[in-house]
Amino acid sequence: MKNEFVETENIQRFYSALSALERRGAQEACLMAVDGLPGLGKTTALHRWALQNDAIYVRAKKEWTPGWFLNDLLGEMNVTPMHSYAKRFSQAMEAMLQRQSFMAQQRQTFAVVIDEADHISRNSRIMESIRDFSDLGDIVFILVGMGKLRDNLTALPQVASRIAQYVSFDVSSARDVRLFMDAICEVPVADNLVNFVHQVTRGFNREIKEAIANIERAGKRGEFSKDNPMTLSDMAGKLLVNDRRTGKPIFVPEIV
């Protein structure tokens, strides 16, 4: 399987929302929420975006306290935390403002990505600290959740009102599955097999990649080309993917 990044419709929506955020009217509305079920590619997309754009990427922990949050944030910026919470807050603000100033000179937006943000979306102390950073420094925070982020934030209206952009990651379309096949599958694949993969995986990226791995495993034994792509009948009787709901293997029917 090729190591290529696939720009699906979800990724395009994220890029559009980011552009809109950069053009925001109210400066204090510096927050973005990216939400969706597990397995839709949010972590892969946001981690890659953070690396490419010199953003800070941290993963929230279930037991995060405000102090632990600041320690992780400072650690990502290579700053040794001081002892008191107030001093650590000041350290983090200063470090982020320095990053922000440097990025502004490059005409880029500095941001902090917090993955697994469901863990903290009901923690008023941590969320208020994020709001303080955002308000005081016009710092962009991108909160990435697993399907409940938007609902959880309604309990914190002062934070929710500062979410300038909501991005929902949905299941991949048949077009997205074709993009995956063309970009990362090392065996040419016909449309009927693409459509069957879309149907069976229900558009979840993890299962799509699992299906591609199994298609490659079977396809490399044959002689397939762009003019002679692998079809659904070529996979008849073979394992395609494991059902995420039951864990049971799904085989392509012998008669297709």
Rank of each mutant, 00 (worst) to 15 (best):
F69V: 05
I250E: 06
F5Y: 14
V58D: 00
D135M: 09
A17E: 05
F196T: 00
I56T: 14
F133W: 09
G203P: 02
Y15K: 12
M82Y: 11
T80D: 12
N53I: 03
W64D: 14
T65R: 11
V187P: 00
R88D: 05
E22G: 14
L74Y: 12
N53H: 13
K148C: 10
L143A: 03
E207G: 07
S101C: 05
L51P: 00
Y85G: 03
T201M: 02
G237E: 14
R125G: 07
P66V: 07
I208V: 13
M32S: 00
P229T: 08
A190Q: 01
V187A: 03
K42W: 08
E223T: 15
R244D: 08
I142W: 08
Q27W: 10
L21S: 02
M146C: 12
P188R: 11
Q105E: 12
I255H: 14
A95Y: 02
V79I: 12
I56P: 00
D191Y: 01
D115I: 04
K87P: 08
N205S: 13
A164I: 00
L97T: 15
M1K: 05
I184G: 01
V140K: 08
A26M: 14
V144S: 06
R107V: 04
A183D: 09
L240D: 01
S90G: 15
S90Q: 14
G137K: 04
T44Y: 13
R245M: 10
D138H: 13
Y57G: 06
G39Y: 01
F251K: 13
R122P: 00
E116T: 04
V189M: 02
A160P: 01
P253F: 12
D191W: 01
V200P: 03
E254N: 13
I184S: 00
L136G: 10
I163H: 09
D234G: 10
K238C: 10
R202F: 08
F224P: 02
A60P: 02
R178N: 07
G137A: 15
E216P: 00
N123A: 11
D243K: 08
E128D: 15
D243V: 09
G39P: 09
D151M: 13
L70A: 07
L239G: 04
L143T: 06
H83V: 10
D138I: 02
D72W: 06
I184A: 00
T154Q: 13
R175G: 05
L239I: 11
G203R: 06
F224M: 09
P81G: 11
V197C: 02
I126G: 01
D151L: 07
S84Y: 09
A218S: 11
S129P: 03
A183I: 06
A190N: 00
M230P: 01
S168W: 04
W64T: 00
R131K: 14
S172H: 15
Q106T: 05
H47M: 11
P249Y: 05
S172L: 15
V200T: 14
Q12T: 10
M146W: 12
D115K: 04
Q105G: 12
D135G: 07
D35T: 11
T246H: 04
A213W: 06
P66S: 08
